[in-house]
């Protein structure tokens, strides 16, 4: 499936593939933020129900995003659900949201539009973002 670019096919408002991509990206962003906010709210409400304070005393130290996300996912897998875990899952979901948007863009430019230039650009953004998520200090 190819989509004529405005340059090739004359100016047009939104082509079919573009419209589907916009809807996909928009929905992805909305779901990501909504899920993240629900998880953070649930963690704070749970903490309040347990202790009478919506306060969580812990820090994320010595972990890059990758380790943080893996540790969070492992705890979920083991069923060790706690207010802290819900908040961590909320933060991880929030950070993954724009990342997944870039992944979707790479697929769109490479697979749908078959535009080598923009496939290269979006891949560069993806590589730099991925590298930043693996940073260690």
């Amino acid at each position: 499936m190819t989509t004529p670019s405005p340059a090739a096919g004359g100016a047009r408002s939104v082509t079919g593939a573009d419209a589907r991509m916009d809807t996909l990206v928009g929905t992805l962003l909305l779901i990501g933020v909504a899920v993240s906010m629900v998880l953070i709210t649930a963690g704070l409400v749970w903490s309040f129900a347990q202790t009478g304070h919506a306060v969580l005393h812990y820090r994320i130290v010595g972990m890059n995003f990758y380790r943080f996300a893996v540790a969070t996912a492992r705890s979920v897998g083991r069923g060790h659900v706690s207010p802290e875990l819900l908040v961590n899952a909320g933060i991880a979901t929030l950070m993954l949201t724009p990342f997944l948007r870039v992944v979707a863009s790479v697929i769109y430019f490479a697979g749908v539009l078959r535009n080598p230039k923009y496939t290269l650009f979006t891949t560069f953004v993806l590589v730099v973002l991925t590298w930043s998520l693996f940073l260690r200090f």
Partner: peptide, 25 residues
Amino acid sequence: VTALAGASVYLAHGLITPTLAAPVA
């Protein structure tokens, strides 16, 4: 996307404290 790139650096440096970040976000 720009904010994510910055946030990754701050998270890796232990500066994103859930105690403060959760109610603020």
